[in-house]
Simulated assay, not measured.
Amino acid sequence: MATVTLKGNKIHTLGNLPTIGSAAPDFKLTMTDLSTRSLSEYQGRKLVLNIFPSIDTGTCAASVRQFNQEAAELENTIVLCISKDLPFAQTRFCGAEGIENVVMLSDYKDGGFGKAYKVAFTDGPLEGLLSRSVVVVNEKGKVVYTEQVPETVDEPNYKAALEALMDA
């Protein structure tokens, strides 16, 4: 179990993010067109997994906007924005914001991603949602960077995540 805070109040997740150097856990997530995507479909590409509670909060929306802007500059890299929001909400947000450089994915069906990456909240007002985290995966499917944001309302360290891509 990992401990983070929400506005200073302790809340917990299932555990710790995958360790650096380990194989990224596989997943099945739902795209905005309701098709299913798995990790293997991104083989040979660098990945930034931008994980967050809900697109309908200011900090989560800011992280998607920031990674969308940064992703336009990245070679052989895909940014996957992952939450438990319904694909319909993700589509609405991306359309309204002009988001085109990231892939929106939802863990709403079975929560398997939140379990595999240990980011599902186990208590508190966000119980069942995903903890704000970033995982960077290299072309070989190995984890090269992780960050579980200690205070849920704070943004992730974009610079550190993007620098990890350069070294991946």
Rank of each mutant, 00 (worst) to 15 (best):
I20R: 00
I11F: 01
Y42R: 05
K118T: 03
A2P: 03
L162Y: 00
Q66S: 14
A168T: 05
P156F: 00
A2S: 03
F52L: 14
I78S: 05
D85C: 14
L129D: 04
E97N: 08
A24F: 00
Y108T: 09
N76S: 07
K7I: 02
G95N: 14
C60V: 07
A23R: 06
R37A: 15
T13C: 08
Y145V: 06
A160I: 03
A116P: 06
D110K: 09
T30S: 15
I55A: 04
N9L: 06
V137P: 00
A2F: 01
I99F: 04
L34W: 14
T13L: 12
G114I: 07
T13N: 12
F113T: 10
T57Q: 07
S38T: 04
C81L: 14
I20C: 01
L29K: 11
L80Y: 09
G111K: 15
K159C: 03
A120M: 14
R92G: 05
E100A: 09
E163A: 02
Q66T: 14
L29E: 11
F88W: 10
M104T: 12
A120Y: 05
E139T: 13
G98H: 09
E100M: 11
F113C: 09
Y117H: 02
I51V: 15
I55N: 03
V102W: 04
K118G: 00
D56F: 14
L130H: 08
L105T: 12
L126M: 10
S133G: 07
K118V: 02
C94P: 10
I78G: 11
K10C: 14
T77L: 12
E139L: 08
S54D: 08
D56H: 13
G111A: 14
Q148T: 11
E151T: 10
E151L: 10
D107V: 11
F93E: 07
T122K: 01
D154F: 05
G114Q: 10
Y108P: 11
D26R: 12
C94E: 13
A160G: 04
E75V: 03
Y42P: 07
V135Q: 01
S22N: 15
M166H: 11
L6S: 04
Q148A: 10
V136K: 01
A62N: 15
G141M: 01
P150Q: 11
C94R: 15
E147S: 00
K159N: 13
M1Q: 09
A23D: 09
D154G: 06
D56V: 13
K28D: 07
V136L: 01
P125A: 02
K142P: 01
T5Q: 08
E75K: 07
M104C: 10
V48E: 02
Y158G: 05
F88Y: 13
N16E: 13
L47V: 00
G8I: 06
E139H: 06
